[in-house]
Write a protein that binds this DNA or RNA. Structure first.
Lengths: 224, 224
DNA sequence: TTCATGCTTCGATGATAGCCGAAGCATTGT
DNA sequence: ACAATGCTTCGGCTATCATCGAAGCATGAA
């Protein structure tokens, strides 16, 4: 049954990651769902068999996309029902709570803290967001220069946007990507506020005690 | 998550049973799904928590209905995806194969044989079907009179339609309901072609050897 | 009251399926 | 040719959850 395919949290996360219409590689989807490539492979095979996604081979990558706008429509409907029932839940997903709190998404900060950071930036008008597009305001530039010693000219890149919203699978909300997201994460590391977990391959980000305090001072929202 | 609710076979069967819009009691739904009342109760509690069904207390019965046409719409969409993927599958559902082959649905024949019967009637132009609406053709009336001694005037009923398509949960296709469906089942019993199983509460219908042959002669499709 | 029916809760069991480590192909790059 | 990357397959572990027996509450009937 199709519904059971969507029912699994890992698969649901993959599908929501594909909801923007773009195709993603198997490993990207694995990252999105917080599972290992082996597990993702198994899931993707099932989704393909169920006709929900279609693979496209390209070099040694395998890009997956939703087969059809119809599929997106049904997923949308499902999400609508879920929202109505107050079911914006945090369900199982990956078991590691640390992974949910703070982790690396490619090269920037994701998880609870990542979402919180973008929320704070938006709320204080340091950035303006329209869907996926994020723009740094003049106040934002001053803020970055003052507190994190990041200047706009550090952020230019030929092919990559400065700011970009990245959908967070554990929170189902956006966090900050792009060169700015990467630069901020790098700065956190340099300032010894945070460091990637020692265990190889882990995406967990551990904050130091002072790092946690500084981060909260800049991006805290008072309720934790 | 809502999808996981629909994903379970037992719950899916209950929901499809409710798709006609009418409300059913907890025990009726248990029967539809082929599970015990305890299990059904647990499932219904989850469906209610998920906002998919709403209970209505009435005496010592508890009637459940789909909360919303929206719910029905999403379920429909899900079924559509499933159909497209060739996923007309026979999954676990009730474990009893006899129940899948032939059973009582209220007062008419359901299961594999029920679906086969309606298929045959439709194919031979003895009935015309438009969605849920089924109409008996003149050829159909002659056929019934000749082979089953059923005349049209036996079928009139103030509030109940003569013919109606009833969605079969094990086959996910239609079988024949309405007064005609009931009359035919009654006739099969009278002719000693079939009888409801002796075990109390069972919905299984057992065909006699001659009954099976006669039934196949009238409604067989050659491939079993 | 006493009994029967419809439904729910509790507890224990068992099977399904997600998950990961290890190893195996395939493709690309050097 | 060799190594590295991306992905898949296989095997075993574990947790989740559907399932049912037994018992507990209701409601309605006698």
């Amino acid at each position: 049954m199709v519904a059971s395919l969507v029912g699994d949290p890992a698969r649901a996360n993959m599908l929501t990651a594909l909801m923007n219409g773009r195709a993603l590689t198997a490993s990207e989807l694995a990252q999105e769902a917080g599972i290992t490539p082996q597990t993702a492979s198994s899931h993707l095979a099932k989704l393909e068999a169920g006709g929900l996604v279609e693979p496209e081979k390209q070099g040694r990558h395998r890009y997956y996309r939703l087969t059809d706008p119809d599929v997106a429509g049904v997923l949308e409907g499902l999400a609508g029902l879920a929202a109505r029932a107050g079911h914006m839940r945090v369900r199982t997903g990956p078991k590691d709570p640390a992974l949910r709190r703070a982790r690396i998404c490619y090269d920037h900060l994701a998880g609870d803290l990542g979402v919180q950071m973008l929320d704070s930036l938006r709320e204080r008008r340091l950035v303006k967001q329209k869907k996926q597009e994020i723009e740094l305001t003049p106040e934002g530039e001053r803020f970055l220069a003052k507190h994190l010693q990041i200047s706009p000219d550090m952020l230019t890149h030929p092919r990559r946007p400065v700011c970009k919203a990245c959908l967070d699978w554990s929170e189902r909300r956006h966090h900050l990507a792009g060169t700015l997201g990467a630069a901020m994460m790098k700065r956190f590391t340099e300032l010894k506020w945070a460091a990637r977990d020692a265990t190889p391959g882990s995406r967990v980000v551990n904050f130091t005690r002072t790092g946690e305090k500084q981060f909260a001072a800049l991006f805290g929202n008072g309720h934790d």
